[in-house]
Nucleic acid binder design. Structure first.
Lengths: 354, 354
DNA sequence: CTGAAAGCGCTTACAG
DNA sequence: CTGAAAGCGCTTACAG
C-alpha cells in the first residue's frame, strides 16, 4: 500500500551483534576506544541490515541537522529568479561536498507576519543549523531579528559602508567597482552624454552601484543630467517602463546608458527596439552581472561578469566553518569579490564632444 | 558568540499556563476537546514567549517531516541544469503552499555506491516524507530500490509503454506528440529531406520522441535516411559535436532538422554557424521544450513548449496527497501533459520536391 | 574497552 | 475537558 514498515533501530542492531546500544552508537559515530574486533562486527551488521540511524533522534540527542536554509528574498517580482535559480545547482552541490543538505525558500513579503513566522519557525524548530540570505534589503528587520536571536547567518549582498554589522558573515561583489568601470568604459569610448538606469538603493548593491556611477562621472568630469538618471527596482519590467517613459518624454537622448544590472538593461533594450532605436548605432548600453541571457541578446550585451557561483561557494564554506566551530570565523566576517569586464556588441565608439 | 541559548520547551509553557504538557500539545496541534478558555490561555503564552515546538521531537513522536526531497539526476553533464534550475523556484513556492519544505539534491552518478548510499540515507534517516525524481533513466536501479523499500515517489518523465510500473506517481509530457508534431510541421513547410537529432533513448523522453519522429515520418511517407539520423544525449555539447561530425562528413545536407530538445538544437545551430550555414535560409531547425533561451537564439528557435512548471505543480500535489492519505491516490498513478507549438524564425518554407 | 542510565522534547492512547 | 505516563530512537557523561 505504499506505507512504510518500521526501520530497524539501534537496539535491534545491538542485540544482533551482542553489544550495547552505546557501543553501536560509538561505532556509528566513529568514536575511539572501541576494539577493532567489535567495530568490525557492528559495521558488518549495520551494513547487512541497511541500518541508518534515525535523524530526528540524533538531533534530539544533540547532533547537528547538517542542513542549511537558503532564503531567497524576491520582493514580489520574478526578475532575478532566473539568475538566482541558475545558481542553485552549483550551490546545492557545493553544500553536499561538505555533507550539508539545502532547504530552499522563496521569501516574497518579508514584512508580513505570516512570512516572518514561517521563516522564524524554520530556525526555531531547529530544522537547520544556519541560513544563507540572498536579496534581502539592508537592515531587513526579519534578518536582523534572526541574528539577534543568535542564529548563524551568511548574507550575500548586504552592507552599509561605515556601519558596524556584527554576528553575520557577509559576502559581496564589488558593485562600486563594476559600476564605475562601466561608466569609465563608456567614457573611454567617447561618450559624454551618459544616462543611468539606477537600481534599488535600499539594497546594498543598489546603493553601491549608484555610488560607483557617480564617483566615476565625477572623476571624468562629466555631468549626469537629472532627466537621464532613470530609476528602476532591478527588474526587467522596471527597466522597460522607465525607458519607455523616458523615450516618450521627448527629452534628448544620451548617447549611452549604464544599467545597474543586465536584467534592467534587457528591459531598456526592449523599449529601444520598440521605438525603432538601434543598438549600438543609436544608443549604447552596458550592464552588470553577465546574466546567462546577456550573450543571447541582440546585440549581445557588454557587461561586468559576477561570479555568483564562486561567491556562493565561499559563503557556504564560511557558514559551515562557523557552524562547526563558532570561534573559527569572526563574528562579523566580510569578503568582497571583484567583477570581470566582458566586452560584447552593445556599445560603440563615438566622437567625444562634450 | 553566536551560539544559541536553549529554546523554551513545552514543559515551560505548560508550567507558565498552569496546565499539563498534554494540553499544550493538544492546543498546538489544534485538537478538539479543549475548552476555549484553556486554548486561549495557552495560545497567548505560546505567542508571548515565541515558542516553536521542536521539530525532531515531533517527528520522533510520530509526526511527518513535511519535507519533500527533490532529486535531479544529472548524469554528468550540465546541459539541463539551466532549465531544471529555472523550475526550482516555482517548485519550492508551490510546495510551500502545501506547507511542505523542499530539500534539493543533484545526483550525478546514480550507479556509484557512494551516491546510492547518500540518496537512500536521506529517505531512511527519515529526513523526508517522499521524493520527486527528475531526469532518471527508465528502471534506474536506485529509483526502483527506493520504491521497493516502500517510499513515496513522484517521477517526472519515466514510462515504458506497456510495462506495468506500480507504486509510483508518474507525470509525463507528451513527447511523442511533440516529436511527431515537429516533424509534421517541417513536412507541411514543404521539407522532404529531414534529419533527426535524436535524444537519449534510455530515457523515457528519448524513446518517446524517437517513436514520434518515426511515426510521423511514416505517416507522411517520407524516409529518414540513416546518415541524417544523428545521435545525441540531450546535451548541447552532443548536439554540437554530432552536427560537426555530420557536416564534415561531406554527406548531402537535408533541408531541415528536428531536434529532440532545444538544447541539442542550440548545439547544432552553433555548428551550422561555424560552417557558415544560415538558418533558416540554408537549413531549418525545430526544437522541443521552449527552453528559456530559445527565444534569444539567432534566429529565435521554433519549438514545442513544455509547461514544466504546471507539470511539477501537479506532481507535488499528487505526492502530497499520497503522503497525507495513501489511499487517496492510486498506487500507480499516471498523467500526461500536452505541449504547445511555438512558431518562431528558425524554419522556412521550401519547395516540396521529394 | 564496554554498558546502564539519564536525557533530548514532543505526541498519544488511556484513565479519570 | 484534562493529565500522568509511556514511547519515539538516539547520544553522552559516567562508572566499571
Amino acid at each position: 500500500m505504499g506505507r512504510r514498515s518500521k526501520e530497524i533501530n539501534s537496539i535491534a542492531i545491538a542485540k544482533l551483534v551482542g553489544v550495547s546500544r552505546s557501543t553501536v552508537s560509538k561505532v556509528i559515530n566513529n568514536y575511539p576506544n572501541i576494539s577493532e574486533e567489535t567495530r568490525a562486527r557492528v559495521t558488518k551488521v549495520v551494513a547487512d541490515y541497511g541500518y541508518f540511524p534515525n535523524l530526528s533522534a540524533r538531533i534530539l540527542a544533540g547532533k547537528r541537522t547538517e542542513t542549511l536554509g537558503f532564503f531567497h528574498f524576491a520582493h514580489g517580482h520574478f526578475s532575478e529568479d532566473f539568475l538566482v535559480s541558475s545558481m542553485i545547482s552549483g550551490f546545492v552541490e557545493h553544500a553536499a561536498s561538505f555533507g550539508y543538505h539545502i532547504l530552499s525558500y522563496i521569501v516574497r513579503e518579508p514584512e508580513t507576519e505570516k512570512t516572518k513566522r514561517m521563516v522564524r519557525e524554520v530556525f526555531h524548530q531547529q530544522r537547520i543549523d544556519g541560513g544563507i540570505i540572498l536579496g534581502a534589503r539592508n537592515h531587513e528587520p526579519l534578518v536582523e531579528e534572526l541574528i539577534s536571536e543568535g542564529f548563524a547567518l551568511g548574507i550575500f549582498d548586504q552592507n552599509l559602508p561605515g556601519k558596524e554589522e556584527p554576528n553575520r558573515i557577509v559576502v559581496n561583489l564589488d558593485d562600486e567597482r563594476a559600476a564605475s568601470g562601466a561608466l569609465r568604459y563608456l567614457y573611454d569610448l567617447g561618450h559624454r552624454k551618459i544616462g543611468i538606469l539606477n537600481g534599488d538603493t535600499r539594497r546594498s548593491a543598489g546603493a553601491a552601484k549608484q555610488a560607483g556611477f557617480l564617483a566615476a562621472a565625477e572623476e571624468k568630469g562629466i555631468e549626469i543630467r537629472p532627466e537621464w538618471f532613470l530609476y528602476t527596482d532591478f527588474s526587467e519590467a522596471s527597466g522597460y517602463s522607465s525607458m519607455c517613459k523616458f523615450l516618450s518624454s521627448g527629452m534628448p537622448l544620451p548617447t549611452a546608458f549604464a544599467a545597474a544590472n543586465d536584467t534592467v538593461a534587457f528591459g531598456a533594450m526592449k523599449a529601444f527596439a520598440e521605438k525603432g532605436l538601434q543598438i549600438p548605432e543609436d544608443v549604447s548600453i552596458v550592464g552588470i552581472d553577465d546574466h546567462p541571457m546577456a550573450r543571447y541578446q541582440r546585440p549581445a550585451l557588454t557587461t561586468y561578469r559576477y561570479d555568483f557561483l564562486a561567491v556562493m561557494r565561499r559563503l557556504i564554506e564560511l557558514i559551515v566553518k562557523r557552524i562547526e566551530d563558532p570561534d573559527s570565523v569572526d563574528s562579523s566576517r566580510r569578503e568582497v569579490f571583484s567583477p570581470v569586464f566582458i566586452e560584447r556588441d552593445s556599445c560603440k565608439k563615438v566622437d567625444a564632444v562634450s
